[in-house]
Design a binder for these strands. Structure first.
Lengths: 220, 220
DNA sequence: ATCTGAAGATAGCATATACTATCTTTGTGC
DNA sequence: GCACAAAGATAGTATATGCTATCTTCAGAT
């Protein structure tokens, strides 16, 4: 006798209400995003994801063939989608009246908004991208991101005659760093009360734009 | 019979030369730093560390009581030490003749030197600091780093009357970002040939210093 | 020469984890 | 009302992994 009685109703365990596949799917994806974000790919376990989603582990594998695929769906897809959406929202309605300064400031602000909103996702992506070889899918696979940066570089072109891509990429680095640093240092490097997020963000924008402008004048 | 014959000399396995405890210790630490750096805390396995160090797994646990402790010794200790050494080396020999501009530039350059040199270590520290709750020890435990940043903030004070700490921390963020971005994006965001590391580093220094100066003049 | 402590090496344990198999229940379309 | 597909639930399996136990060998002290 290989199999034993299953689900013998000894303990009066209350059975969960039946939920729709859509609800299950989003519950799992949300829990996975959080777990991956908080613990990294190898740190996150399917058991923990299931617990968090209030779903049995078996159900996860009914929706997603493997942990790696779940990771891709939970982290990659949304990130890619959000970057694409963000891209069109950001640049579609730019009026010609805006100065390049204003445009650049808007680009920087919105990039930081986005990154702040998805800092944990970005964090685990960065970790995955840099070190987890087994999870196929890297930052460079995010087509939306690539397009976004290309557009941003073009936007910077009007301001920095010399090396627009360098200027733009520096700005991206600053913004990335702002997000990463807040995760890394929590309120140590920026003690609460010294300066709030808004001030810091504004400072970065000023700093970035003026920094680039200063470098436009050669021989400094 | 619970125990079987151990080490029966059937296969003529060549026995390794005997190595000193010091050598073993450093072999293990070095391998551990690499493995943790490349795979993160949960991604690195003691088996892989042992293989890399050309040591049996059991030997690791003769030197270090646990994986967590090994992590602390391999990542934390050296980082802390290097920051302290770097701190004194960097600022001890500043002549009074140096302008604050030159000092700031030197601070930025050397910070970036250090970070570039230890980018992988920093990366895994970030992972640990941000997400791995089980590994006690976080960025804020690095006393050398704290002292270093305090000194740097003081150095910025002469240049930015308003909010020196914000200016300094922005600079730290830029430098961190430069390192992280190069790990994250490899040669995607900065394609090789467009600008080499030296140029980028110089640009960051200029950019940072001039950006701060621009913001000194209010009402921009 | 011999003793001994530590290095080299093998085997294994307990637990964790990704994933599967199977049973039981339930909402829905007919 | 009933069939049935899919959700809820339980119980695994195979492997990986942190860590231990134990044996064997060897270099240096006595």
């Amino acid at each position: 006798m290989a199999k034993r009685d299953l689900a013998t109703s000894d303990a009066p365990t209350v059975r969960r209400k039946r939920r729709s596949p859509e609800e299950l799917n989003s519950l799992i994806l949300e829990a996975a995003a959080r777990e991956f974000g908080e613990n990294g790919y190898s740190g996150a376990t399917t058991a923990a994801i299931a617990r968090r989603a209030d779903v049995t582990e078996a159900q996860i594998f009914r929706f997603f063939p493997s942990k790696a695929e779940l990771f891709r769906e939970a982290i990659f897809r949304p990130l890619n989608r959000h970057f694409s959406e963000f891209h069109s929202r950001n640049l579609a309605d730019s009026t010609d009246a805006e100065t390049s300064n204003e445009l650049a400031r808007r680009y920087i602000n919105e990039l930081q908004d986005f990154m702040g909103e998805h800092s944990r996702m970005l964090m685990s992506l960065i970790v995955a991208s840099a070190y987890e070889q087994d999870t196929s899918g890297r930052l460079t696979d995010i087509e939306g991101l690539r397009a976004y940066f290309e557009r941003g570089a073009a936007l910077m072109e009007s301001r920095t005659p010399g090396e627009p891509k360098v200027a733009h990429d520096l700005m991206v680095r600053v913004s990335f760093a702002a997000v990463l640093a807040s995760v890394m240092f929590k309120d140590w490097l920026f003690p609460p009360g010294l300066a709030n997020d808004e001030e810091i963000r504004q400072a970065i924008a000023d700093f970035t734009i003026e920094g680039i402008r200063a470098n436009e004048q050669p021989g400094l």
